[in-house]
Amino acid sequence: MSKPIAISRVHDMDAIELVSPDGARATLLLHGGHLVSWQPAGADEQLYMSPKSVFASGQAIRGGVPVIFPQFAARGPLQRHGFARTKPWSLVSAEQGKDDALAVLRLCDDAATRMFWPHAFELELSVRISGREIQIELACENKGEEAFEFTAALHSYLRVADLDSTSLQGLTAMRYWDSVDEMEKVQRVDLLLPGGDLDRIYHRVREDLTLKERLATTERRVQIRQQGFEDAVVWNPGAEKCAALADMPADGYKQMLCVEAAAIEVPLRLAASESWSGMQTLTLL
């Protein structure tokens, strides 16, 4: 029998603190529908959160998993990455089950969103944890009478001990847009070794990716799977750009790599009453 989970306070904000029966934990803020922590059963924190991040109404949070909607980056007329990550979401349900814990949050259009993006919509974010796995699902329904298009992403910041000891597997032969050089390229090698300013949108992702990190006595591996999202973004600001970010420590880039499930190259289009959903699943192997 499931047990309801009450709203608590984390970073002085309303939050849902999920705990599954096996000890897996996650923290989800109602502000932005923002996942700020994930600890698999018997393991350490897997997400990067900037120690300089601001937790305030209307402000974006640096780290965790921001929800990007209805615009990715500056690819359109709206504020960068859209408005979903800075809006208050409402709690639909939160409970601990026999084998897992699950929270569902909702965001609907209001007078403020319609000023910038004149569409009626309903977003639902579902976060489920069990054992060494977390599933993050974003769903969108067109609640209006006119069709609309949008881009979206789950902007996951994965924590690493040292970027120089980190690689990402599963990108061989994939086509991508290099946002730094502003040109299309093809990934020629199996392992991506981050270095410097890295900002790439990989297209038509079908295979699972694996984040690998060489530790002192072992290897950490996180499997990254996505459904419903056609693209994957790999991002690290590098030393120069990181130093210019007010909400990041100058060396913060060494402790994170963003691997994002995204729909960017071909915007998603929903007719009246149509819906879409996409999911990113992270598994500590």
Rank of each mutant, 00 (worst) to 15 (best):
Y253W: 15
F229N: 03
A243Y: 04
E230K: 04
L257R: 03
E219Q: 13
L215Y: 02
A261E: 05
A239P: 09
A232Q: 02
M279E: 14
I224D: 03
S277M: 09
I264M: 07
A262Y: 04
E219R: 10
R225E: 13
Q255T: 13
I224K: 01
N236W: 06
E260Q: 09
E230R: 08
F229K: 00
E274I: 10
D231A: 06
W276D: 05
F229W: 06
E219K: 09
L270G: 07
E274W: 09
Q223T: 12
W276G: 11
A263S: 15
L257M: 09
A262L: 10
L215M: 14
I264Q: 09
G228H: 07
E240D: 14
A232L: 12
V234Q: 04
C258H: 03
E265T: 15
I264V: 15
G252N: 03
T218I: 00
M279C: 15
G252T: 01
E230W: 02
E240R: 02
W235M: 03
A246G: 04
R225T: 14
R220K: 14
L268F: 03
A239D: 10
K254C: 13
A272Q: 12
Q255E: 14
P237H: 04
G278L: 07
E219G: 00
E240I: 07
N236C: 07
R221Y: 08
Q227T: 10
G278Q: 04
W235E: 03
Q223D: 12
A262K: 00
A216R: 08
V259D: 05
R220H: 08
E230P: 01
P267V: 10
V233I: 15
E265H: 15
E240K: 07
S273A: 15
P249E: 08
G228M: 11
A271T: 03
G252Q: 07
G278D: 08
V233K: 00
I264K: 01
Y253G: 10
A271M: 12
L268V: 15
E260D: 08
A246C: 01
I224M: 04
L215V: 02
A250C: 09
D247M: 05
W276T: 03
